[in-house]
Design a protein around this nucleic acid. Structure first.
Lengths: 239, 239
DNA sequence: AAAAAAGTGTGTCTAATTGTGACAATCCAG
DNA sequence: CTGGATTGTCACAATTAGACACACTTTTTT
């Protein structure tokens, strides 16, 4: 794991979000924030998150409930954050699937230490990675087998994909009909953010098109949005 | 996203609108204002708004109610503004779908910080307001396929459109039979406002006409409104 | 462990798209 | 009808994307 971990800070207080983001970034992490459950789910759908810092008290669905929801579909590590005096919930939080627990007010050193510890602990596990709920996607004349990481044409013939090509295609397939910037794609497929003159996504898109498009010169599946990025146009169905 | 965000300031007090607009513009944002719900809805229909600064107390329909109305059709980020002493409404505001909350009187730095924070948070999400429920529009002898970003003649033959041509046509198709100024079109299609001698829309309209009109010299679909802009005349139906 | 193969990203050149300036054509007020 | 303002369109410059070669990494094979 040489990629810098991407941490999602979920707290309804914007000042706390800002404060925490700032020192996490300073320590070299990539950070996204969310103010409630809805935003959290959006972030989880759009980005490859490595760890969630989840406040217990939230408007709408509360932290415990969110924690359980996340656990039902993935095993992203979660650190619960709670205001002092709510310590009773510690056991409950851990039972809900949180990986650690920290009480407000907290020092930056403490949070950093816990994050590091949890990440180290989790990376050691032969992370079977989140159990993908669906195992096959169909689109255009292709089938993407998530379990086998294989691309099949409709008649079942395998088209070999490299790791990077597969990851990029996966990012597209899971977010069809949406314009995705190069930066987003890089985050989703590679887990890193773009550097100044980064053209690697273009190259990889070009390679994918060569393998998948009937006529790579006028692509039907992955289209270019000039000045914006790329968009995966086909209807995707799961099976 | 390199386009400068467009912020809509909704407040019934003209002095506050002016004050806020001024420092937002100074900070590089594009700004529109509205004094009540009616004007707000007009602005939302006419321009591509990236964020709404919404005062809680308004004549007619109040801020909370407007907030809910907006949320029912879009997910444009909203920051609620409220006079001091109304802090009780904080949770209520967030539950109504606001993304953040700020109390009057506020410092400019505070407002700018919150706006920046909300925009950054949202920028990772689906490009703000292109959740078109319908995927195809028909007009004249053309069909515009929104998913595939393709223009088809009635017999199904594809007419290639560049990204900019597609975006402009989309702006027209979604607002047919209305005079649209160059400034509006630039905002809707490009997400930026016109500079002094901006003729790019004219050029792009010319290019669209060349591809779509039977006789580009006497256009039937996109007509010129002398001194006003352009108007998309055909009846548009969705399918 | 060394060698070979496959995969990935950067730099360069080419192609496509877009915006701007120029100038002709058109429109409208007086 | 005339003149200034506005619009249509062309050519060109600037920006962005595609393709390809090559260097650098990682993985696999020997």
């Amino acid at each position: 794991m040489n990629k810098t971990p991407h941490i999602l800070v979920v707290d309804d207080n914007p000042e706390i979000r800002d404060l925490v983001s700032r020192f996490l970034i300073k320590d070299g992490y990539r950070v996204s924030t969310a103010g409630d459950g809805r935003e959290m789910h959006k972030a989880l759908a759009d980005k490859r998150i490595d760890l969630i810092l989840l406040d217990l008290m939230l408007p709408g669905e509360d932290g415990l409930s969110l924690c359980r929801t996340i656990r039902s579909t993935s095993n992203i590590p979660i650190i619960m954050v709670t205001a002092k005096g709510e310590e009773i919930d510690r056991v409950l939080g851990l039972e809900m699937g949180a990986d650690d627990y920290i009480a407000k007010p907290f020092g930056t050193r403490e949070v950093l230490a816990r994050i590091k510890a949890v990440l180290r602990r989790v990376s050691g596990e032969t992370s079977t990675q989140e159990a993908s709920p669906r195992t096959k996607y169909s689109f255009a004349k292709w089938i993407l087998d998530v379990d086998k990481r294989e691309l099949l044409s409709a008649d079942g013939i395998v088209t070999p994909l490299s790791t990077g090509e597969y990851d990029l295609l996966m990012a597209f397939v899971e977010r069809p009909k949406r314009v995705l910037s190069r930066d987003q794609l890089l985050d989703l497929a590679r887990g890193r953010s773009a550097s100044v003159y980064d053209r690697s996504i273009d190259t990889q898109v070009s390679r994918l098109r060569r393998k998948m498009e009937l006529d790579p010169k006028s692509p039907e599946i992955i289209k270019t949005v000039w000045g914006g990025g790329y968009i995966f146009t086909p209807e995707v169905s799961q099976s």
